[in-house]
């Protein structure tokens, strides 16, 4: 079975919540499949966004491309609505000036309908999130 990236608007995913919104750099840029476009935070941490798949998916690997993110927490939900989030992982990322952070998380397969990304702290006043990739196989709800 071929693995899919579920964090794509073309796969039916939506960003249903984001705590910052600059209309030039909207959260939809995270799921447009491109690293060139990004979402910016516009001040004060923590900041977060929630991706909804509108179906239950099985994920085995998550990748996030971002810049200046320090502490990142990821949570998952298996509910139809964006509630009952459970802890997935929390990590302090490393950062090199001028280089996009590409962070991969491998897991034993888990089910999710929503993913929540919380940026708890940052290396600077603002951060960017360019792309999130959730690889796995789809399942009917």
């Amino acid at each position: 079975m071929r693995s899919t990236n579920f964090c794509l608007s073309t796969e039916g995913a939506d960003v249903i919540l984001a705590t910052s919104s600059d209309e030039k750099y909207p959260p939809e840029n995270i799921i447009d499949g491109q690293s060139e476009t990004f979402w910016t935070t516009t001040g004060m941490f923590p900041q977060e966004f929630v991706i909804c798949f509108h179906k239950c998916v099985i994920i085995s690997k998550l990748t996030i491309q971002c810049y200046l993110v320090q502490t990142l927490r990821i949570e998952k939900s298996m509910s139809k609505d964006p509630v009952d989030f459970e802890h997935c992982i929390e990590k302090d990322l490393e950062y090199k000036e001028g280089e996009l952070q590409t962070e991969e998380f491998s897991f034993p397969e888990f089910q999710a309908t929503h993913l929540r990304f919380i940026i708890l702290s940052a290396f600077d006043t603002f951060v960017s999130v360019h792309r999130v990739i959730a690889e796995g196989i789809a399942q009917d709800i």
């Binding site: 750099y25 690293s35 060139e36 990004f38 910016t40 491309q65 810049y67 001028g98 280089e99 996009l100 590409t102 600077d124 006043t125 603002f126 960017s128 360019h130």
Partner: peptide, 19 residues
């Protein structure tokens, strides 16, 4: 900062992670 974010992904050539 936004200018810097833009400048991060100007790597359209070559085999990079992003591509």
């Amino acid at each position: 900062k936004v200018e810097i974010f833009h400048s991060l992904v100007n790597w359209k050539t070559g085999a990079n992670q992003a591509t």
